[in-house]
Amino acid sequence: MTEWYRKHLGLTTNPYGATFEWYEGSDSTKKAQTQWTPFSEKTKYFEPSTKDFMINYRVENLVSLVSELKKENVTIVDTIETFDYGKFVHILDAEGNKVQLWEPKD
């Protein structure tokens, strides 16, 4: 799918899809990103959700947030993973949608 969008719509793609950069309205000097990543229709990456999409939210202090979410009985799908570009964890929202929380290393 990534290749199809690159070829036919001219998206500048990377191994994860395409990154769209923009500037935050409240601080026009602060760059932000929106990531678009297609997955195979047979992917199991979104499990345990039965939906065919996932939303990723940028957050601050992921460890503290996960601690608070646990207190509120939010389903935490996995453990926090740390990469050179930030920390990630997955949760389920009230409708069972898988949500990725990302604390970027800016």
Rank of each mutant, 00 (worst) to 15 (best):
I80C: 09
M54V: 11
N61I: 03
P38Q: 02
T29S: 15
N61L: 02
G86Q: 07
A18V: 07
N56V: 12
H90L: 06
V63K: 13
W4K: 13
N56F: 00
E103Q: 11
L11H: 00
D27W: 03
D27E: 09
K71W: 00
P48L: 12
W102N: 14
K71F: 02
D93V: 04
M54A: 10
R58Y: 11
E103Y: 05
Y23M: 04
F83N: 08
E68V: 08
P15E: 08
E21N: 13
W22D: 06
T43E: 07
D84P: 12
H90R: 14
L65T: 10
E95L: 07
P15A: 02
E60N: 14
V63D: 15
E103S: 04
F20M: 14
Y23D: 07
Y45Q: 05
L9V: 10
S64Q: 14
N56P: 00
Y23H: 11
K70A: 04
N97E: 11
F46E: 07
E72D: 14
K98Q: 15
Y16R: 10
K98A: 06
T79S: 12
N97Q: 10
T29A: 13
T29Y: 05
E81F: 04
L101T: 08
Y23Q: 11
Q35P: 02
E95A: 13
F88S: 08
F39S: 03
Q100G: 11
S26C: 05
F46A: 03
H8V: 11
Q35I: 05
I76V: 15
F39P: 03
K31D: 05
E68K: 14
L65K: 10
S49V: 09
G86F: 04
N56Y: 03
E24I: 09
K42C: 00
E41P: 11
V63T: 13
Y16H: 11
E95D: 15
A32P: 00
E21I: 03
P38K: 01
P104F: 00
T2H: 02
K31W: 01
F88V: 12
G17Q: 07
D78E: 13
M1E: 13
F88Y: 14
Y23A: 09
Y5C: 10
T75I: 15
L69G: 00
K44E: 15
L92N: 10
L69K: 06
K105T: 15
G86V: 03
L101M: 01
K31G: 05
L101D: 03
K98W: 01
Q100R: 08
K70W: 08
T75R: 08
H90P: 00
E60C: 04
G17F: 08
E103N: 07
T50M: 09
E47W: 01
K7R: 13
E41T: 14
T12Y: 03
N14D: 15
D84T: 14
K98G: 01
V74W: 01
G86K: 04
L62K: 01
S49C: 09
I91P: 10
K105S: 14
L9R: 03
P48D: 12
D106W: 07
E3L: 14
G96K: 07
T75M: 07
Y45D: 12
S67Q: 11
N56W: 04
T12A: 12
E24G: 13
D52I: 05
V77E: 02
G25H: 10
E3G: 04
E68I: 11
K7A: 14
W102K: 03
V89N: 05
Y85W: 13
T50R: 10
T43F: 03
T2A: 15
